[in-house]
C-alpha cells in the first residue's frame, strides 16, 4: 500500500541528506520525494510516498521524527487530500503530426511551453494518473525527454461539506517533534 507523508524540517545544511539517508538505511521503499519551501520561513516541507503496510508507515514516521531537524511529520489519508504533480515532456513532432498532439494537449488541459520545427515541449499539471495517461499517449510519438516533480499534497479544508462518518480516520495524523 502507498502512503503519502509530509515532513517539515529546519532548513539546515545537509538536512535533506539526513532524511534521505535515514530512509535508505532503514530500508524503506520511497516511491517519490519532493522538497520545497513551506509557509514558515526557515522550514522546508518534504512530501514523499512510501510503499508498505501500516507498520512500515509507523516506523517511517517515528524514525523521521527522531531526527533533530525534523519538526513535524504528517501522514495523509489519500481521499482527504489534494495531490498534484507537474511534468515537462519534450516530444519529437514534425508539422504533419502537430495537430494530433495539440488535440491531445487540449483534452488533458496541458500547455505548450515551447515549440520548434522538430519538437514540442509540453507542460501538464494534475493527478499522477492523468499525467501517466498523457505520457502514455505521447509515447506513440517520439518521446525525447521528460521530467516529473513527484506529487505534492495538501489536506482539503475540513472535508468540504461532507458529513464526516464517525468511523473515518482523521484526515491527517500529526506528529510534533518527538525525537529522542
Amino acid at each position: 500500500m502507498k502512503h503519502i507523508l509530509a515532513a517539515w524540517m529546519r532548513d539546515r545544511p545537509g538536512v535533506l541528506n539526513r532524511v534521505t539517508g535515514l530512509l535508505s538505511r532503514r530500508n524503506f521503499n520511497i516511491d517519490s520525494l519532493q522538497v520545497s519551501a513551506s509557509e514558515e520561513p526557515g522550514i522546508s516541507r518534504m512530501t514523499f510516498e512510501v510503499s508498505g503496510d501500516d507498520r512500515t508507515l509507523e516506523q517511517v514516521r517515528s524514525q523521521l521524527i527522531k531526527l533533530v531537524d525534523v519538526t513535524r511529520v504528517e501522514s495523509f489519508v489519500q481521499e482527504a487530500i489534494v495531490k498534484r504533480e507537474l511534468a515537462l515532456v519534450r516530444v519529437a513532432v514534425g508539422p504533419e503530426e502537430r495537430r494530433q498532439v495539440l488535440d491531445l494537449i487540449q483534452v488533458f488541459e496541458a500547455t505548450v511551453e515551447d515549440i520548434s520545427r522538430t519538437n514540442m515541449l509540453i507542460q501538464i499539471v494534475g493527478r499522477e494518473e492523468k499525467i501517466d495517461s498523457l505520457i502514455g499517449l505521447l509515447r506513440d510519438y517520439h518521446l525525447l525527454e521528460m521530467v516529473r516533480t513527484g506529487p505534492v499534497a495538501i489536506v482539503r479544508s475540513a472535508v468540504a461539506n461532507v458529513e464526516p462518518e464517525p468511523a473515518l480516520e482523521p484526515a491527517r495524523d500529526t506528529w510534533q517533534g518527538g525525537g529522542v
Binding site: M9, R10, V68, V70, Q176, G178, G179
Partner: peptide, 9 residues
C-alpha cells in the same frame, strides 16, 4: 530551543 527534539514524550 530545538523544536524537532522532544526527548521525553
Amino acid at each position: 530551543k530545538l523544536p524537532g527534539f522532544d526527548p521525553y514524550p
